[in-house]
Design a protein around this nucleic acid. Structure first.
Lengths: 128, 128
DNA sequence: TGACCATATGCACATAATCGAATATATTAG
DNA sequence: CTAATATATTCGATTATGTGCATATGGTCA
């Protein structure tokens, strides 16, 4: 972006990559892999998703170049190949937070009174 | 991300937002709006998409808080409400470029010789 | 070799997303 | 009010995407 005009093919590639990130299971896998490489079995245990599901999502991430794999004995270890995904998630989190705060102001009528500065980087977290 | 553990609901919200960006028509609309606000008719003319399609995609972007609207007479002018989308697209472009360069090295064997530093910001552009 | 384990894939099904055509709504002008 | 224009929405068809189950593949070990 940033003043460029992208052709249709490039735009489709970008969209495809966004779609790749547009699934909660895949996001969970990436987040779980953030700490370091894990086997498929580890990921199944960590995420609670079915083995077939995990494996299929990993293939998608692999083809998209977001993760890489390494075989060791019977196990296959996956790891994040492109740390930019976390940057993307952070930006989206910020975008979401800003959006929700705008929504709140719309409804309740500027109760917080923080003015314009939104509390940066507290995102959501906290398990529910 | 960045060391946080996001709950399922948050993860679903993030995924949903990525999906919102996962359509080439919507990306084209956002890119077209980058220069400034435009009416629906303008966007239809600029993108070549059907009026109903443009209108529907705009509603999705609107509900997601990525664009905002302003009515003036019979026309409705849309503009980008969250500039982060362009940042996201830039990061994805970089990710794509890196991925494709890795693919190239895999196949042809390091012909470019750029080493690690990818040429920043040249993306793709050039209409096809 | 065959038993066994981890991972990947194929298939049927359900659901979500997109599109095109038609139509509804909103706004202005007469 | 009606006519005209811009935008939004509905409907049906089509396609993409995700899931669960079963099974295939690839590797280790006896």
């Amino acid at each position: 972006m940033s003043g460029n005009v992208l052709n249709d093919k490039t735009l489709e590639l970008i969209a495809e990559r966004f779609r790749l990130l547009g699934d909660p299971v895949r996001l969970r896998l990436l987040q779980t892999l953030e700490a370091g490489e894990l086997s498929v079995a580890d990921l199944v245990a960590a995420t609670g998703a079915a083995q077939a599901s995990v494996s299929k999502h990993l293939q998608l991430l692999l083809r998209g170049g977001l993760v890489q794999r390494r075989r060791q004995g019977m196990f296959v270890y996956y790891s994040v190949a492109d740390g930019r995904v976390f940057e993307l998630c952070d930006v989206v989190c910020g975008s979401l937070t800003a959006y929700l705060e705008r929504e709140l102001e719309q409804l309740g009528g500027h109760a917080g009174g923080d003015g314009e500065g939104r509390t940066p980087g507290h995102h959501d977290q906290g398990n529910g």
